[in-house]
Amino acid sequence: MIRVLLADDEALIRAGVRLVLDTAADIEIIAEASDGAEAIEQTRRHRIDVALLDIRMPKLDGLAAAEHIIKLTPATRVVMLTTFGDDEHVARALRAGAAGFLLKDTEPDGLIQAVRIAANGDAILSPKITRHLIDTYIGPEDTRGDLARQRLQVLTDRERDVLTLIGNGSSNADVAKALLVSEGTAKAHVSRILSKLGCTNRVQAAILAHDAGLLPPL
């Protein structure tokens, strides 16, 4: 069972998300919160697998809450709830180690699948939107590019290929298909890359791939 925390200051949004997730037999909303401080407290109190956090909340916003939760309970996967107008805030969340983001108008099936993907350890990456965020708010900068290329020197050629796929939004299944290997082997490659690069998750690895120039322009 995937244990979920839902944090949004709008009761109507929480009710709608709960209505959708309650239809999935393998997902359970363990706790709800209406502000960032409460979200942190609920995460401390319960063993949460996936925290869905609205970016804009009172007392402590979702960004600050995400940073606290990621540090306090690294096993909890944080997914931000956002709109297209929150690009800059999402970029900050990705830098902090969030597993990704969901648009508030995501279709019900997409919401359920996203929670499952996050719980499985994959990032919620829409390649086009994520690359737009990276290009607009994160880079490139010459110094950052040099540092990224230095960090990538620890990778083998095969691992660089996998990192490029990660940067383009590929899941473990996509990596396995592209490289003609098992999904278990693909997952092992990804885990080894994250460890070597000191990345918390695939999103941070994707940012490094971008900064190092591995990804072609959109």
Rank of each mutant, 00 (worst) to 15 (best):
E159R: 10
S34H: 00
V190P: 07
A148P: 01
A15H: 13
L163G: 03
V175Y: 05
P108H: 01
L63W: 08
Q42L: 11
G213W: 06
T83V: 14
L53M: 07
S170T: 04
T73E: 11
A99L: 14
Y137P: 09
S170K: 11
D8W: 09
S126P: 04
H189M: 07
I134D: 08
L72T: 13
I166P: 10
L6T: 04
S191K: 13
A99N: 11
T200Q: 10
K128V: 12
G169S: 12
V4E: 10
R45Q: 13
L179E: 13
V162Y: 13
V154E: 00
L94F: 15
M57D: 02
D22E: 05
N172P: 05
D9I: 03
P140M: 12
Q204Y: 11
D35L: 02
L165Q: 05
V162I: 14
A98N: 09
H89N: 13
I69E: 07
A118Y: 05
R158G: 02
I117D: 14
V175W: 03
D87Y: 04
I124D: 02
L81A: 06
I40D: 03
I13N: 08
R158C: 02
V115G: 01
I166E: 09
T73L: 08
G198V: 08
A118H: 10
K71Y: 02
L19Y: 13
P127I: 05
R131A: 10
R158K: 06
T106P: 14
L6M: 02
D109H: 09
I129C: 00
R45W: 03
L125H: 08
D8M: 03
A33K: 02
L218Y: 05
V190D: 09
V203G: 14
G121P: 10
A51M: 06
A119T: 12
A15M: 14
A65K: 03
G169C: 12
M57I: 01
R131L: 10
A114S: 15
L179R: 01
M57N: 06
T106Y: 06
A148H: 06
S195E: 15
R131F: 11
R144D: 02
V50L: 02
G97V: 02
R192A: 11
E159M: 00
K177Y: 10
G62L: 07
I2V: 13
T136W: 08
S126K: 01
D22R: 12
H210P: 00
I27W: 14
A11S: 07
I40H: 09
